[in-house]
Design a binder for these strands. Sequence first.
DNA 1: TTAATTTGGTGCAAATATGCGGAATTGATT
DNA 2: AATCAATTCCGCATATTTGCACCAAATTAA
Lengths: 244, 244
Amino acid sequence: MDKLIYIADDDDNIRNLLKSFLERENFRCIGFPTGDALLEQYSNSPCDLVILDVMMPGHDGFYILREIRKTSNVPIIMLTAKDSDADYIQGLDLGSDDYFTKPFSPVKLVSKVKSVLKRQEEITGKTSVKETDDGLISFADIVINRKTKEATLGGEPFPLTPNEYALLTYLISNRDRAISRTELLDKIWGYETQVETRVADDTVKRLRKKISHSGARISTIWGYGFRLVMRSAEDGAEGDDSED
Amino acid sequence: MDKLIYIADDDDNIRNLLKSFLERENFRCIGFPTGDALLEQYSNSPCDLVILDVMMPGHDGFYILREIRKTSNVPIIMLTAKDSDADYIQGLDLGSDDYFTKPFSPVKLVSKVKSVLKRQEEITGKTSVKETDDGLISFADIVINRKTKEATLGGEPFPLTPNEYALLTYLISNRDRAISRTELLDKIWGYETQVETRVADDTVKRLRKKISHSGARISTIWGYGFRLVMRSAEDGAEGDDSED
DNA sequence: TTAATTTGGTGCAAATATGCGGAATTGATT
DNA sequence: AATCAATTCCGCATATTTGCACCAAATTAA
């Protein structure tokens, strides 16, 4: 997952409870005792999802919500005291956001978080891969630094040619779906350049060789294109599943 | 087609040129002299594809791009002056977007628009059948993942050839009605392809073999075509269940 | 019932897709 | 001009898919 979540709640117990539950699901969490503290951190370094208690010292959760919404479309989940805020909630247009009424089940909140993030991924499309602030994206033991355009495999730097770099980056960014040859030609080589259909295969070929020792594998979708997947134990140097 | 396209370019000639080319292909087009005008219209009423010139009065195309991206994943094609923006482009991560350098061939742009829209449909899927958040469609114990183009039967992956995949997807998407052979030929094989009428039967035959253990069954509508139904003892209305 | 038509199954050959090694080309740098 | 790296192109071996012929079985009509 590797998603970053900010949590603002003045109750230490609730904050830590949430953190532990979310971190158990491999989310990274940072807690804040006030919404204002969260807001400041957010403006410096955004996250993937925000959980806001309504009742907090300083500005309340709804204020923070509006402030964040001025610049960002990040998913926000509101925590409200049982009934007192219920009507308020009803009267608000929370848009794509969600809310939970206390007391709530941490398990349910976690699954809510998951579904919200999943929906967000659908909306933003290819950004199933969140790029970190330093411009890093990764898959298996491959890490790509988009700023320096360098790649490492298991910590060791390994060289990529420009086309290989572009292709691998594109595959990693779209890890959740199969990519057709025409799309690759379109995106990597550009539409106007009229090249053989097989050039994509060529680059895939070379890339496969270079990542042959890694935990990633470029699988073939027969009659369609390719997809980056984890190399499972049985894979080895074995052929792939080609389901179309 | 009936897709709506917004075009922002301060050059009337280019705008009208594009409009005429695109409208000739049955797209609906609305032109805007500035990106800001387009942005305002878009926020009121989104469209299916956006074409943005980079150099425009007011905010430039990249600004508009980012603004639209805050709320939408609509395909965007950028138009850039030949060399001046080239380096800029390189430095940017245009992500899922496309760009054309001026001067460009309207014909190529049109086919670009078509391929982008087609791909968009492929990815998001356009089935009327309920599709889960993951892009999954299912029938009985068959699940098809339209993103990865994988199919599973009772949880186990099972391989499908391109034609089989297309056919099964079509059958599942139209589970509620019988589908004629000619419709199958049109939708799966395409209008142009000149093949025997019986090729659909071939693929149906192979598909039947592969799903013979599943809870689904392709029933024959005698003298007409096929229909996907549940395999059960009582469904003799459509045809006899002598399978398995 | 028989005859005509439609559908299903087997097998095969043609068409197509893919992977791979290596040669040719391009482009940048000495 | 020579060199080197990157990319593209070529050709072949292999694997897979697909269309079609042929016949058997099923269905309908008479």
